[in-house]
Design a protein around this nucleic acid. Structure first.
Lengths: 188, 188, 188, 188
DNA sequence: GATGAATGAGTATTCATTCAT
DNA sequence: AATGAATGAATACTCATTCAT
């Protein structure tokens, strides 16, 4: 199943899907996605075998993009707390800056159309993030908890903070800092 | 003097909707819900004007039930930490004991079919829970943050913990206690 | 099938049906008609066995009312042209004054829910009107045509005139007089 | 380069709609229309966005066909009365020859599913017919009446005559000639 | 008789996917 | 490969009529 080469069309479809799913939920029709992307309906199915595959690819693109973003900012050498702080702000900002992507991610996270395999790939790719979280929690109450669980807690806090900021953007800094402190204490 | 509305039928429809939505997502067909509830398709619409109304009622029933459950256990007089501990375990256990309800709630939380009004009602009803969370966070890093935000952070931790337990039930106690400690520290 | 006695309810249902059918066509739901009439849905079917019967009764009430109206004004002794003129203005005015009834009549005239029997009754009841039309056409080009046909032509002109007035009420008198002249000449 | 739209299918749907609406009224189901046309139900909606659009297209096709028919016969050079006579017989004959189309037209004429725009298009297209009617009425009692009104009166007479012929076909010529004389006198 | 809940066949419309061109 | 017409099962919702209360 070698991917057809026109990368632009493929990305256009994914971008259109993101915009439409953010508006209408996962029920957004493939024909509408095609129209928004400016490609014929049939092309959706030459780039993605099924709608489910499109959703899985979208899930992976979003999680990969997010992981890349936060990995980039957090990898600068520094002490753990400072690194974790950069992780935190990078992560929340990604959601604030990309509210459509954030909404789509929220939908995909609870959808059974996304396969376990996709979820596992996303997890594996986020390994460096987990690594930092492990370090940040190495001496705290969660020191003996499985890293998946600790990661889930951190993600939950990030997401709750992000959504609060999106709902009430004027207090962005306040939420971000308070959320960070709460997270840091939770790990301590 | 006409036949009165049958409360059992109404509840049967809501129960069937819960089971089916847990399995299939919000796309579960009203005709399937009717079949599972053992009522004719048309009857769904004598009890709920539209599918959206059914979903909103379901949302409110679930959140109300959850709030009642946790309010009951947390209201015993005690110090704040002990009360918060009972809130925590009552909340997570509700999700663990009712995984279908938990899954449906997760779907409804990200659905735009649930109206702002329904969400507000649920929030208002949960006032006693927020009250306790406020007390628990009165001296910590979040002391000046809006209570909605603090509540969202706590809910995020509860939900993440619950879902971790559902995924890996053998470590239920471990997750629950670790999650509680993390939450308590976040608020301290 | 002795008619239930509460004449008010029955008339209320017919009035509500008229208003609703004028707005929505013959597809207007019996439950909506009941609601508008302020009676329970079931009552519609204690006063009328079926919706089709309701429509037939409505048809007869409308045509009877119209016939009574025009018969009343035209029966004053006078020469034929003056009588026909009163017939004409009485008929058109009824439609102009009762646009909802006029619209419902138009719908029922092309509906196959109205039985041949109902149509025949309406025709029979309008006998005095046909009688005058016969006299008015006794010496003209239509003198040998069947009276039903002549009546149909006159009715067609009345209806066309009425609808023109309803559409453009400022020219009511002009249309009415011009229509009358045209009809009179057609019969001469 | 995809399959082009199939004109035959489209016309088949319109023909099936005509037959079924003539029998059952505008309530005729799209699924029945599809079955009668020998196409899958869904195809109705690739050719017409909604049932309302189908009805509007049908209205326009019928009125256009009728206008073309009468325009063709009336345009032969001749004196006004002879031209009007050909208009008259062409018009009534179209209805007599196509009773289903005539019945559908009667339904559509009183339906609020047909838009004002469609009605205006039909009127505009019939301009040459109005032109002849204007000439025929230039010296009569209706000489100062708006042409729309005069046209409505003529149409009313045509339709009444046509329907009388359909009901009693043996006297076709008698009705047609008597109706023509009546109309001509009405305009004189 | 009055009431309105119950019923289930029927309605227009949608949609992922296929496939002829 | 590109295109968009074709498909038909599926969907939410309606409604005249019946009938338990």
């Amino acid at each position: 199943m070698a991917r057809p080469r026109n990368e632009d069309k493929r990305n256009g479809i994914l971008a259109a899907a993101t915009a439409l799913i953010a508006e209408q939920g996962l029920g957004a029709a493939t024909s509408e996605i095609a129209k928004k992307a400016g490609v014929p309906h049939g092309s959706v199915f030459t780039y993605f075998e099924t709608k489910a595959e499109l959703l899985n690819v979208l899930y992976l693109e979003l999680t990969t993009e997010l992981t890349d973003t936060v990995t980039a900012v957090m990898s600068i050498e520094d002490d753990t707390r400072a690194q974790f702080h950069r992780l935190w702000t990078g992560w929340t900002q990604w959601g604030v800056i990309n509210p459509s992507k954030r909404r789509v991610q929220a939908q995909l996270n609870v959808s059974d159309q996304v396969s376990e395999q996709s979820r596992k790939s996303a997890y594996d790719y986020a390994e460096p993030v987990f690594e930092l979280i492990r370090r940040a929690s190495a001496r705290g109450a969660l020191r003996n908890a499985p890293i998946d669980f600790v990661g889930a807690l951190v993600e939950a806090l990030v997401v709750a903070t992000t959504d609060s900021i999106i709902r009430d953007p004027e207090r962005a800094d306040e939420y971000s800092e308070a959320g960070f402190e709460a997270a840091w204490q939770a790990l301590s």
